[in-house]
């Protein structure tokens, strides 16, 4: 209750570790959702460099060649380690959101309600596995290659 009497520390103490699987799933889903919305906006912003590029705007890249803005921006971004790391993070976030989303869709359809906690752990494990498996792909060609 939003206007309930504030029990101070007594109210909050140790509450978070008492959360059940379903609550964690909800919190993660919400958090990853926010991240993905934020990414969607920046993604479109970055891709917007295609407009001046299409109009023939050229820049000189680090190697001294003339390239269009779009290619330059993307290559530049992709060559920084931080961006690569963020991409792996993004993949993790997206994969979890997808898998837990499927879990929620099943719950909405009334399937597997009794094993909802198990499916949550499964989606966590699967996310981890997929992310680790794809790290090489994401890191490919970074060290000057």
């Amino acid at each position: 209750m939003s206007q309930s009497y504030n029990r101070g520390l007594v109210e909050d103490f140790g509450r978070w570790k008492e959360f059940s699987a379903g609550m964690w799933a909800w919190i993660f889903h919400k958090f990853t959702g926010w991240v993905l919305v934020g990414y969607l906006f920046t993604h479109i912003a970055v891709l917007s460099t295609a407009i001046p590029a299409q109009q023939g705007e050229m820049v000189t890249n680090s190697a001294g060649e003339q390239v269009d803005v779009y290619t330059n921006t993307l290559t530049l971004l992709e060559s920084t380690f931080v961006v690569r790391l963020l991409e792996v993070g993004l993949l993790a976030v997206a994969v979890f959101h997808i898998l837990n989303g499927i879990r929620l869709l099943l719950v909405d359809l009334g399937i597997g309600l009794e094993s909802q906690d198990k499916t949550f752990y499964a989606s966590l494990v699967l996310t981890g596995a997929i992310v680790i498996a794809s790290v090489p792909t994401f890191m490919a060609g970074i060290g000057g290659a």
Binding site: S20, G22, M23, W26, V107, D108
Partner: peptide, 9 residues
């Protein structure tokens, strides 16, 4: 309802 299952538990 966000299907957190807290109530059911």
């Amino acid at each position: 309802c966000q299907t957190q299952f807290s109530c059911t538990e």
